[in-house]
């Protein structure tokens, strides 16, 4: 039997990029850049997501988010959030890559692809997602692809060339956690189990909807390779403490899954022996 310590969680390989942490953390919605910086550090992550926008090139104090992200420490994963068509997502991906090439960050080779279906649910448009995924892969991107928790859609995204499929636990920013654990488990089975045509090394990251550390643990206990979250940390009352909890929860879930849980039973099974008991004598 293999024994493990918390120091033995293997790195996660996503295309050419190696992650030392299984948490990928977003940089949006923090009250200020300083809190974001401390929360990222507390989470232990080494990859962070960002958005590409024109609204503000610097904040009202003349600062850029890049002033608060150590680009030697963090791989930056630009997203295509806010795109509702494949063509817009492709444009945004290329713009993000051009920025990261200028700062010589390893994240220039990848993109978190989101092609959204509507503004209320922020659920993905599956047709647009596949179209954009194929074109970005053709253009040399490693595509980390946001998806619903539909298992068949997950396999189609993989077949379109995505480096990683990222099924949603629940709608973005909802804090509802893993709404359908069976669906996530099916995604993981179809993508990773050889008997279902999967590859055990194919990465699956649960993205979106995480509200609590236990949500992270559940995702990892289902067999996900990692979890991507933002709002659950950024809008917590104490984001830095929550980031710490998310880190610990991720480690716990990883070890929980890989150590092999006991099967569930209908009836009780006493942990203390009946033999030798003086009760009822």
């Amino acid at each position: 039997m293999t024994t493990m310590t918390t120091h033995e969680i293997p790195h996660l390989q996503l295309g050419d990029i190696t992650l030392t942490s299984r948490l990928v953390v977003g940089t949006g919605k923090y009250s200020d850049y300083e809190t974001m910086q401390l929360a990222l550090d507390a989470s232990g992550c080494n990859a962070v997501t960002v958005a590409v926008r024109r609204e503000r090139l610097v904040d009202d104090q003349g600062r850029s988010i890049l002033d608060f992200i150590d680009t030697d420490k963090y791989t930056i994963l630009p997203n295509t959030a806010g795109c509702f068509t494949a063509s817009d997502a492709i444009r945004v991906a290329r713009l993000g890559r051009d920025i990261l090439e200028q700062i010589d960050n390893a994240g220039s080779s990848w993109v978190k692809l989101e092609v959204l279906g509507d503004k209320t649910t922020l659920l993905p448009d599956p047709v647009g997602t596949l179209e954009a995924c194929r074109e970005l892969v053709e253009d040399g991107f490693s595509v980390m692809c946001y998806s619903s928790d539909d298992p068949i859609m997950a396999t189609l995204i993989r077949d379109a060339g995505a480096t990683c499929v990222m099924p949603a636990g629940s709608p973005i920013g909802s804090g509802r956690g893993i709404a359908n654990p069976c669906a996530i488990r099916l995604c993981i089975d179809l993508l990773k189990k050889p008997e279902h045509g999967g590859d055990p090394t194919y990465p699956v990251i649960v993205d979106a909807g995480v509200g609590t550390p236990s949500d992270v643990t559940i995702a990892m206990e289902l067999g996900a390779d990692g979890v991507l979250l933002n709002t659950g940390i950024a809008l917590a009352q104490l984001p830095i403490q929550m980031a710490t909890a998310m880190r610990m929860a991720c480690d716990a879930g990883y070890h929980g899954f890989h150590s092999g849980r006991i099967p569930k039973k209908l009836h009780a099974s006493a942990s203390s022996p009946f033999d030798g008991s003086i009760a009822g004598e």
Binding site: G26, T27, G28, K29, Y30, M36, T49, V50, A51, V52, R53, R54, E55, R56, L57, S64, I65, L66, I76, P78, N79, A81, V92, L95, G96, I99, I172, G173, A208, L228, L229, N230, T231
Partner: peptide, 10 residues
Amino acid sequence: IEIVTLVGGG
């Protein structure tokens, strides 16, 4: 012309 940069996002 569109000029964009990186901002916080998830």
